[in-house]
Computed example of a mutant assay.
Amino acid sequence: MARPRKCRKVCSLPENYGFAPMKGIDDENRVVMAVDEYETIRLIDLVGYTQEECAAQMHIARTTVQGIYNEARKKLADALVNGKVLYIEGGDFALCEGESVLCGKKCEKFCCKKRKMENIPKEM
């Protein structure tokens, strides 16, 4: 029996829900990145957190962060190298309701019911 998934805390939803190559948008040939994958890229690559710090921020294990991060990097590479449209949507996550030192918000308190971000307008 598989372990139940822990809540993956996300500080805020992305401002942009997708990116497209400058040359020939082919919506059929696309890559979909989940919100928790986006959050690991943001925390590790943009903010400069270690995987341990990222795991603490998201309230999940470091090994889980490592797996999410590796998948996110593969998706980014596929979109960049192969000129695919990248959408950021879906996934199970908990959006924090407080503030955090990390993102200028206090993230100590967050709603632990899992959310699915679906049907987001795809504006590019």
Rank of each mutant, 00 (worst) to 15 (best):
A56R: 11
M58S: 02
N70W: 05
N119Q: 12
L46H: 10
K75Y: 01
P14F: 03
V32C: 04
R8F: 04
V35I: 14
L102G: 03
V101Q: 12
M33H: 01
A55S: 12
A79R: 00
V81T: 13
R115G: 03
S12Y: 08
L86K: 01
V32M: 06
K23Y: 11
C111R: 13
K75T: 02
A20S: 09
D45W: 02
A79K: 01
E71M: 09
E123V: 11
G67Q: 09
L102Y: 07
I60W: 00
K106P: 05
D78W: 02
E39F: 04
C112Q: 13
K84D: 01
E108G: 14
L43D: 01
Q66L: 07
T50N: 09
G67P: 01
K116D: 13
T63E: 10
A72T: 02
P21S: 08
E118G: 11
V32W: 00
C112R: 15
Y69A: 01
P4A: 10
K116H: 12
R42M: 14
M1A: 13
V32G: 00
M1Y: 07
T40F: 02
H59T: 12
R42V: 06
E15T: 09
Q57H: 12
L95Q: 07
R73P: 00
K109R: 14
L80E: 09
R5G: 07
Y17W: 14
Q57T: 10
K75Q: 06
A61L: 12
V47D: 03
P121W: 07
K113S: 12
D92Q: 13
E15Q: 14
S12L: 08
A94V: 08
R42G: 01
Y87E: 07
E52M: 11
A79Q: 02
D45E: 15
K23D: 11
E118F: 08
Q66E: 14
A55H: 02
A56F: 02
S100D: 15
K114Y: 03
M33P: 00
G67R: 09
P14H: 04
A34C: 07
E97V: 15
G98H: 12
V81L: 15
V31C: 03
L80W: 09
D36E: 15
D92Y: 04
L86M: 13
Q66W: 05
G24F: 07
C96P: 02
C11L: 07
E52W: 06
F110A: 11
C111E: 13
K114W: 03
R62N: 06
G104L: 11
D92H: 10
G24V: 08
F93H: 05
P4R: 13
K6C: 06
C103V: 10
C7D: 07
V101N: 11
K105P: 01
V81W: 10
D26W: 04
V47I: 14
T64G: 06
E108W: 09
F19W: 11
L43M: 15
A20E: 04
I60P: 00
A55F: 04
C107M: 07
Y49W: 06
A55T: 05
T63P: 02
A94F: 01
C11M: 06
H59G: 03
R8P: 00
